[in-house]
Design a protein around this nucleic acid. Structure first.
Lengths: 330, 330
DNA sequence: TGTGAATGTGTAAACGTTAACCTACAGGCG
DNA sequence: CGCCTGTAGGTTAACGTTTACACATTCACA
């Protein structure tokens, strides 16, 4: 229950708490014998320093918080893992919170991270908490947005070139199939979906093609939405000749719909933001826009570290990662 | 930077810190006007209580730690998500640490969680840190093992009936194909793999079949290991008629190997512990042993809550979840 | 021989909360 | 009128660390 404190160690070793602290933190002068003596007692009593007290006194937690919309999405987990490794190497711990694409839980997560005094917050936001984020920045906390930006928020950010990649992909589809391809978007509340949609429209306009609203299906980045979009498109009188899906989960859902309708999965070409784990296992005509999650993670971690170690001041940094379109082999 | 403290709020509102604390924690008597006044100041200053100080004083963090071997494995994430939801409902936060199946990082994670004074630790252990876990229990901390147990450790645990399920699966394969099926195990250091292996052996013995060492491949629960096992088995002069894989990731790897070798993925039957996300998308003869991650998560969360709220004392609780073998349709 | 730097150790004041304890006033009741 | 109870709010001592400061001792050097 109640743990061993530095006082217990000090008493047992016959020294003051200051000395124990000095031994443990390797600062100040301590003689060799005393040091050995203290370390022996620490080991014998299995003493674990109280990080709460330490952080309170030092006013540093060496902890970074991260709020993710979906921990079951391998894309976000890949980003998170890279960030964690990188931060660990610099002596910071990462505290994940999953908010399930829910703005309310996201707000709560942000609150908790602030109360825990995490030194920075990395956020892939739902878009619903601009005010809370703004207050956080205003209070001088380091905030790094990843993947998604938030309207009206000027903060460090690491994002994909969504418009560019979507433009390229749409142009590719246009060239191959003309304008009759379906688009499965994410929720309008996310910057990624809005930017990707803008990219597609740009490509269509450049080619002088009108955009047919019937070919746009607004999903919400979930598997289920992808499936529903699939049934919508495949049930049309004149189904589209190809489909552009704005994330990996919806792509998976789309393929499920094809399967349910008894269509061969290579019946039409699909272009997808984000990779599909399952892709190598089935016949398909899947083109993928690789988002390089580790590049995003590395960039985010680097920004956090430089803000925390170097001066916290300075204009917001914007890092844009270039996704790569990898087209289906046939 | 340095945040607003309860003192600032107190000064601004013209009351003592005790009163502010009372308002915030809804205990003790505070008049309506003062309460409104304080809340207004809290809002205006955007005051965030310091959880470090609070926890230090109260000697409660309302935080539970969780150490996972692999955050990219959807099975563990499903367990984690259920636990988080359940704990949140009881007012606890969950702090995940990923240790990447590495005993050293696991040890480090356990240390950090103890220093943070998480009130309980939920552990899916690599098996390499029995001593650290023993010390943690000895120190009176609540520890719940999930999925895997640790040799020589008596603690609360939520596990699958691994031996039973493996026995059933092996018996099923024996009846259908005789003893010539391959087995891809996990690392010997994990209790799950040992128990599953024991189950298979039990079934073989009962049937009076000798166990052929050439049909056992020791993997390490990674995709890569499954792939290597695949090439090993499929490259044999007389390849096995079916394969039993001890986890989902290795199953995925096995299918990759089949693909690489140009075999149709339904060329032989595979029985796998844990589900495969991709399964619905390709032709296969996959039988799955469902492990019910949410049942495991619920049970683990319930044990934690009852230990933390009710008496911490009492004999270790052992909850065994029954996995369900779901055989391939053909 | 005095002086200053380097080394070694203790004392005590923070860090931001909470909660035990105290004071004070009102009103009800015998 | 005295006393108890309920309400309202202030004072202050913790919680377990770190660290500024103080005090010794040793040793080199002028």
């Amino acid at each position: 229950m109640q743990s061993i404190t530095i006082k217990d160690v000090a008493r047992e070793a016959g020294v003051s708490t200051a000395t124990v602290s000095r031994v443990l933190n390797r600062n100040g002068y301590v003689s060799h014998e005393v040091r050995q003596q203290v370390l022996a007692v620490v080991k014998r009593l299995n003493y674990q320093p109280n990080a709460l007290a330490r952080s309170l006194k030092q006013e540093r937690t060496r902890t970074v918080g991260m709020v993710l919309p979906d921990m079951t999405n391998p894309y976000f987990m890949a980003v998170a893992r890279t960030i964690q490794r990188r931060l660990l190497a610099h002596g910071y711990r990462l505290f994940y919170m999953d908010c399930d694409e829910d703005a309310e839980r996201e707000r709560e997560a942000i609150r908790v991270l602030q109360e825990m005094r995490t030194e920075a917050v990395i956020l892939a936001g739902t878009g619903g908490n601009a005010d809370a984020v703004a207050r956080m920045i205003e209070a001088g906390r380091t905030v790094v947005l990843i993947d998604r930006t938030i309207d009206g928020i000027r903060a460090d950010a690491v994002t994909d070139d969504n418009a560019g990649a979507a433009d390229e992909a749409a142009a590719y589809l246009l060239g191959k199939y003309g304008p009759r391809f379906g688009i499965i978007t994410g929720p309008r509340s996310t910057s990624t979906s809005r930017e990707r949609a803008a990219g597609v429209k740009r490509a269509l306009e450049r080619a002088g093609c009108p955009s047919d609203p019937a070919l746009w299906y607004e999903g919400d980045y979930t598997r289920r939405a992808g499936m529903e979009a699939g049934h919508y498109f495949l049930g049309m009188n004149e189904p589209p000749l190809a489909v552009f899906s704005f994330n990996n989960e919806m792509t998976y859902g789309f393929y499920l719909a094809m399967k349910q309708r008894g269509l061969p999965l290579d019946a039409l070409e699909v272009v997808s933001f984000g990779e599909l784990d399952a892709a190598p296992l089935f016949e398909n005509r899947l083109s993928v826009i690789r988002q390089h999650p580790d590049q995003i993670g590395e960039a985010a971690a680097d920004i956090v570290v430089s803000r925390l170690e170097g001066g916290a001041e300075g204009e917001p940094v914007q890092r844009v990662i270039m996704p790569a379109l990898e087209t289906a082999s046939r």
